[in-house]
Design a protein around this nucleic acid. Structure first.
Lengths: 254, 254
DNA sequence: ATCTCCCTATTTACTCCGACATATTGGCTG
DNA sequence: CAGCCAATATGTCGGAGTAAATAGGGAGAT
């Protein structure tokens, strides 16, 4: 064990993720991975395509082979590409992509997001989050409830137009999943939370949010606090439905 | 577009994933990543710990710094570690780990799996798969049904004691998720499928499988084929419950 | 003469090495 | 106590050599 324990928690990732270029704190291979990742997610490189050889591509990008290779390792780890000697580096079929990886999800939403995929994500939310709310209502303790309440007050103060407000929204949902005492669900939260963050930003882009989301969240909180499993599931169901509604309309009228 | 399209689909990953050493087809940095990944998942390196410096660690592992760094990039991409100049490479807190990544899941099951985590995974299955079966019952077409039927016959022929049989089991569940027409769910299939594979192997390890799993699967198939959404969800619910039962008992009596 | 199989040759990723650049930390100094 | 400075570990670079997998050609059999 070493000194300085409570560090490395700079989860600003979600805040600064949209950045294009390479600022300080953003490594070169990270920037390359971002560039290639968005290119693949946006369809610029289709599954089955073969990327130019290491030497050629690295030279084209003006980086060393080391940096390029490390970027490829990242993409490979996320299931986007696979490399083999003599055969080259190939974009894998879409069902091998790790779409639930928060970073991949971010890449998917930097361009024009596929509306069909957004629908898929909300359908997944509609399955997972009500079930999570049900479990949370049965297993939550005081600490969980306090976390949810704090997140709610923060949401009220900052509103969803600010990054701080969206962070509070994510905290609220994360607190619920944390209360389920289920690690697998909690990991999904990181992914779904990221996705929700992008779509929420989308809603803002189109117009000021027409609906006040606070009451929906309060209903969920109240049911969980009361230990009302069925009520919590139902309230969360409504919340997700409304969020889908808003997102859909804002995407269509664009 | 280039020659030789229908390749790169060697998903033997799940079949040969338990290998320790570095065989042909398994790259060096992949072996290092596997070694470090399992070490982290097994708790040998706890969150917050700092790994020895690149030069030192690479020398200790008898590999070049490049190979070691590429392995670290893989782990970093999966959220297991993070590196910063001067500060070193640190193991991230558990909630940052990408536990749903199929490879990470494999690492988690190479050692003694945490029974609490297995419970979490089955709880997730119990949430997602019945809902998926419900959607599949509403949206499946002939092709989907044929894929399920083929998988069932393959399961009958090989039984779950063989890798071929387990592959058929995975194919069955994958066919269901494919029938939901939902990409996000389909990605979860890769993860859940991997998890199911490991736990199934576990059941085998303890003793010959006491229960014949075929009838449970057939009930699910029949309901989906009949378009009976509620019945499909319920049948899948039973299936997952029984699987959990078997896994739990085999883990306890070990 | 045609087909099959094996073997070689080439292409490409993979690994290694050694040097330099950069960023962050922690101590030092004013 | 604040701001500067140097030590240190990661990050980036370029090149050289190795290993693997595919494609193509040649020998053998049908």
């Amino acid at each position: 064990m070493t000194v300085s324990e409570a560090d490395y928690n700079n989860t600003d990732a979600s805040a600064r993720q949209g950045d294009e270029a390479r600022g300080p704190g953003r490594r070169l291979h990270g920037a390359i991975a971002h560039k290639l990742g968005t290119a693949i997610l946006s369809g610029k490189y289709a599954p089955g395509d073969i990327l130019s050889g290491e030497v050629a591509f690295a030279e084209e990008l003006q980086v060393s082979r080391s940096a390029y290779r490390e970027a490829i390792q990242v993409l490979s780890a996320k299931g986007l590409v696979a490399s083999r000697p003599k055969a080259g580096t190939r974009v894998l079929p879409r069902d091998r992509w790790n779409l639930l990886d928060p970073e991949v999800l971010g890449w998917a939403f930097t361009g024009e997001p596929d509306i069909e995929f957004v629908r898929s994500l909300f359908e997944l939310r509609a399955i997972v989050e009500p079930a999570a709310a049900r479990l949370a209502a049965q297993r939550r303790d005081k600490v969980d409830l306090k976390a949810m309440k704090d997140a709610l007050t923060a949401m009220r103060r900052h509103t969803l137009t600010t990054e701080a407000g969206r962070a509070a929204d994510r905290d609220f949902h994360k607190a619920i999943l944390q209360a389920t005492r289920n690690d697998a669900l909690l990991v999904l939260s990181a992914s779904i939370g990221a996705a929700v963050n992008w779509t929420t930003q989308f809603k803002q882009r189109a117009r000021a949010l027409p609906r006040n989301p606070i009451p929906d969240h309060v209903r969920v909180y109240d049911a969980i606090a009361a230990g009302d499993a069925a009520g919590a599931a139902e309230a969360m169901n409504v919340l997700v439905d409304l969020a889908l509604e808003d997102t859909r309309s804002s995407m269509e009228e664009k």
